[in-house]
């Protein structure tokens, strides 16, 4: 495997150059991300990109739980919707500043995810089923508690994103930068976490929980933290989305789309890497909205299924795996780890 032998041949001196290369890749990616603004993309295109980045954040939170926590979630719509409603209600009913309400929305999603803790004892498909059921509860709650949520009619009267230091976050360019910044921040948190001793322990837990316990790893607590963190990230992006689009209804905020799309995006991009889910989300979302929709206006999602199936068959490690295979020198750590793990 080129990646592995590469790593062993230049172990110690590679660390510094790898860091340099990592910074280079990071700068390149950031330039790429800011390109639409510089090139003057149309409001329609920026709108698509904002939605794609919201999905990217959600896919990142799904992949974090799947990759580090070893848990497959079919219920991220719950965290996404709770974050959205939480933030919209805080801002709309209690007058909390929107930029404070958004992280608080994430926090509320985290608190609600505590209800999932008993399911952590379940593994594999049983956990997936439990979280699927869990997600349904919130759609029903949001519909039934109409004194709080406005019921099926939805929620419209809550503030959008504010203007900060003369920079209007509510217009397309402003929203784009804000959502992008959030994706970058959480991606960095994910990377740091994965590199720490906790990240190593989490990867080992996925292999054998008992073998980690006998050297002092409290596997249950670590998995709990991953669930809470994943719920927080999903909640924050739900909240961001809520303030950008300006209305909420239960069938939208808790739609199964928010559970399914991050899975497709993360698997397509390569859920074992950090950048994979982000790129997977952007590619998949733009493909769906721009290409699939024009080909098959109704039921265009069927093409996503086909594209995903082809990807899984041809490149089980997704986009990041492909990149790592063909561009081993450029790939750097963030992308190449997935490939390394399957060498």
């Amino acid at each position: 495997m080129p990646v592995t032998s590469n790593a062993s041949a230049q172990a110690a001196p590679a660390a510094a150059s790898q860091r340099g290369r990592g910074a280079l890749i990071g700068a390149g990616l950031l330039a790429l991300a800011l390109l639409p603004l510089v090139a003057g993309a149309s409001p329609y295109m920026l709108g698509l990109l904002i939605s794609a980045l919201i999905l990217a954040g959600l896919a990142l939170s799904w992949a974090l739980l799947g990759n580090l926590g070893g848990m497959v979630s079919f219920g991220h719509a719950a965290f996404f919707g709770v974050g959205a409603y939480g933030s919209a209600l805080l801002a709309g009913k209690l007058g909390v500043p929107v930029l404070l309400a958004i992280p608080l929305g994430g926090l509320i999603a985290t608190v609600f995810s505590l209800a999932m803790l008993p399911a952590l004892r379940l593994s594999g498909p049983y956990f997936a089923l439990a979280i699927l059921a869990y997600a349904q509860i919130f759609r029903i709650l949001a519909t039934e508690l109409d004194w709080l949520t406005g019921g099926a009619a939805g929620l419209q009267r809550y503030p959008g994103l504010p203007t900060v230091l003369g920079f209007n976050l509510a217009d397309r360019a402003g929203s784009y930068v804000l959502v992008l910044a959030c994706v970058v921040v959480f991606a960095l948190v994910y990377m740091a976490l994965r590199r720490s001793h906790v990240g190593t322990a989490l990867r080992a837990i996925a292999d054998s929980e008992d073998a980690t316990r006998v050297v002092g790893v409290n596997a249950t607590v670590l998995k709990t933290w991953m669930l809470l963190l994943s719920a927080f990230i999903a909640g924050v992006f739900g909240a961001l989305n809520a303030h950008i689009i300006g209305f909420l209804e239960p069938d939208y905020a808790f739609s199964g789309i928010w559970s399914v799309m991050p899975i497709i995006a993360a698997v397509f991009g390569g859920y074992r890497s950090v950048l994979g889910p982000i790129f997977g989300a952007v590619v998949i979302y733009l493909f769906d909205q721009v290409i699939a929709k024009s080909l098959i206006p109704v039921g265009h999602q069927i093409l996503l299924g086909i594209v995903l199936a082809i990807m899984v068959l041809l490149a089980p490690n997704g986009l990041s795996g492909l990149v790592a295979r063909f561009l081993p020198r450029l790939a750097g750590r963030g992308l190449s780890n997935a490939e390394k793990g399957h060498a």
Binding site: A204, A211, T212, V214, V215
Partner: peptide, 28 residues
């Protein structure tokens, strides 16, 4: 619990050479 006992110094080397296969020797 098991992890707590390990922290207290009671450490096991499990049967069957249970290593974390997808991790490097050093990470193990």
């Amino acid at each position: 619990k098991t992890w707590d006992l390990a922290v207290q110094g009671l450490v096991m080397v499990p049967e069957g050479r249970l290593v974390f296969r997808d991790m490097s020797v050093e990470e193990n």
